[in-house]
């Protein structure tokens, strides 16, 4: 049985430049949307509390820069992530094709213990654009890709009108917890004082 304490979940949002990562985060956290595009420089960080099955969680959301020239954080950025959100624009084929690269890059850099079961969530964003007429990546195609990568949960969202944003983040949080390892009892360092001459530490004595 999991403890009732508050938990913090680190969530990384990845995807090509301009697919709406920052907008999704803003819609989720602040319920706001702006049509103006401002490139994220390096990274942006927001937090939001969510409640799942009577438990409170704090989502620490790492909104990354999609532009290659700002991607200099690498390992440090991905370290200790609890969930990774892959975002593409349903109106831009390349952004969907790049999902594979984003996923591989994440697994390589973060090197989670169980890469096959690391929780990802895929979001197809901007479904509101042009009433859906400019859409080029079909729902079927996206779902097939998600299925082939270990049944990644898939949501079609609109950061502009808020469609599915709440549901997507609820799923993100749930997946992050599911992957949480069994809580080990914390064992502090101890030294057996009853034993004879202990082995010296390898440190230099000089």
């Amino acid at each position: 049985m999991a403890s009732r304490r508050r938990m913090l979940l680190k969530v990384i949002i990845l995807g090509d430049s301009g697919v709406g990562k920052t907008s999704l985060m803003n819609q989720f956290v602040n319920h706001k949307f702006s049509n103006q595009y401002k490139a994220t420089i390096g990274a942006d960080f927001l937090t939001k509390e969510v409640q799942i099955d009577d438990r409170l969680f704090t989502l620490q959301i790492w909104d990354t820069a999609g532009q290659e020239r700002f991607q200099s954080l690498g390992v440090a950025f991905y370290r200790g992530a609890d969930c990774c959100v892959l975002v593409y624009d349903v109106n831009v084929t390349k952004s969907f094709d790049d999902l594979n690269r984003w996923r591989e890059d994440f697994l390589l850099q973060a090197s989670p213990h169980d890469p096959d079961n690391f929780p990802f969530v895929v979001l197809g964003n901007k479904i509101d654009v042009d009433g859906g007429n400019s859409r080029v990546v079909s729902s079927k195609k996206a779902k097939a890709w998600c299925a082939s990568k270990g049944n990644i949960p898939y949501f079609e969202t609109s950061a502009k009108d808020g469609t599915n944003v709440e549901a997507a983040f609820q799923c993100i949080a749930k997946n992050a917890i599911k992957n949480e390892p069994e809580e080990d009892t914390y064992l502090p360092d101890t030294i057996d004082m009853s034993g004879g001459q202990q082995q010296r530490s390898s440190g230099c004595d000089c």
Partner: peptide
């Protein structure tokens, strides 16, 4: 070193999670 807050003198650690992420980003960069 993953940017998760452990202690803050003032304020709630969880509410400051975004801030501690920023600190981690500076150090790691």
């Amino acid at each position: 070193n993953s940017g998760k807050p452990i202690y803050s003198r003032y304020g709630d650690e969880h509410k400051l999670a975004g801030f501690s992420a920023t600190l981690q980003a500076i150090i790691s960069f």
